[in-house]
Design a binder for these strands. Structure first.
Lengths: 208, 208
DNA sequence: CCACTTTTTTACCAAATGGTAAAACCACGA
DNA sequence: TCGTGGTTTTACCATTTGGTAAAAAAGTGG
């Protein structure tokens, strides 16, 4: 009687389930990250995943569930670099390492970056709550850590939250606004240059 | 026989035309900036503008024409602050003034910022050409100017294009990702703090 | 090979959406 | 006041879209 197939059933998922859910999520990441939630269609996801539309709805209860599954599944990966900032490390090096990791994620996971960007741009209607419960505590903590470092004279004085915003903005820019970046950089290696630029930016901003 | 009403007719538009086209564009800016092109509907624009859907299509040939009209009409406003950088001014002050103006636009024109962000995020399918023809020459010129200043020893060494990207990213972040910013800043005055932070960031980055 | 479950396909549907035709309405100068 | 041209409404469409029902087709353990 138990279903277990759809929703977040408790039973162990079969090999087929695992494979097809992964296919669907990967296709959906393509489509959602390109067109946003409302602009994406189940038909596009179906085509991109190689499954039929009803078959997709056999694995997920609806379009929205696919989207939410993607977002919440990605949240952890997305926040990992910030979690790895070591309070006992050398402040400037810790922050520069964070910048480099975020930039690297922009290069390797541009679809994920755009997925989040689309969601936030449109007011975060589907993960608004998650921002406060998952993101805020971590940001509060990290901002406090940065400001402690600054108060100890190990960094130049800085507002922790705005520093974090600026790191997000500058690193994710290369993924989110790639269309613009590409139009303006005639074939130059954007990311390699960005590493150098952002390293200098935050070093000059923060080094005592 | 001449139409003159729809499309970009040559005849002088009547008062009613002027008023209603303005209403439509304002409503469309609300809707497009919130949902992106594909996520926006003519019915939403109709409701927001107080006109009926067919009436909207009397003034604009279609949904896409409204969108393109908005984008190209805004392009000039959007690029103005960069045009106002004075090659004969004091380099650091010119750049900081540019940062402040961009930030001010983020505060006063958040819908416009999100409209562009949505378009670029989704690959700039409707203004891709405009990026190269309108934006690129100006960016090339400004980047060259900045690097000339740096070469003259009036700024620290810096890649002009990446500096511009970072200014766009950090300033527009407060408009484009407002949902996130608001979720993380408990009622603090984001923009006033941002002025201080970004002033310090670019001063430390560029001051000799 | 058989019964039983999981997976996939086929055939639909109702609502939403961009858009059109044409009639009705309205402003305003002759 | 009447006609004429610009404006708005009413009544529609064809397509697209998210989603469903149910039958067909694999798997799968015994």
């Amino acid at each position: 009687m138990e279903d277990g197939t759809q929703a977040a059933g408790g039973a162990k998922p079969s090999r087929i389930q695992l494979r097809n859910r992964k296919r669907i999520l990967d296709a959906a990441l393509d489509v959602f990250s390109m067109h946003g939630f409302r602009g994406a269609t189940l038909d596009q996801i179906a085509e991109a995943s190689g499954l039929s539309k009803p078959n997709i709805l056999y694995y997920f209860a609806g379009k929205q569930e696919i989207h939410v599954t993607l977002l919440s599944g990605l949240m952890d990966t997305w926040l990992d670099p910030m979690r790895e900032i070591d309070p006992d490390g050398e402040p400037l090096e810790e922050i520069l390492r964070y910048v480099h990791r975020k930039l690297e994620m922009s290069r390797t996971l541009p679809r994920e970056s755009r997925l989040f960007a689309n969601e936030i741009l449109q007011g975060a209607p589907r993960i608004g709550a998650g921002l406060v419960t998952d993101l805020k505590p971590l940001v509060d903590e990290t901002a406090a850590l940065i400001e402690t470092w600054a108060a100890e004279g190990r960094l130049k004085p800085v507002d922790g939250r705005h520093l974090i915003f600026s790191i997000w903005a500058t690193t994710q820019h290369y993924a989110d606004f790639d269309a613009q970046v590409q139009a303006l950089m005639d074939g130059r290696d954007t990311h390699d240059e960005a590493v150098v630029f952002l390293d200098a930016l935050y070093r000059r901003m923060l080094a005592i």
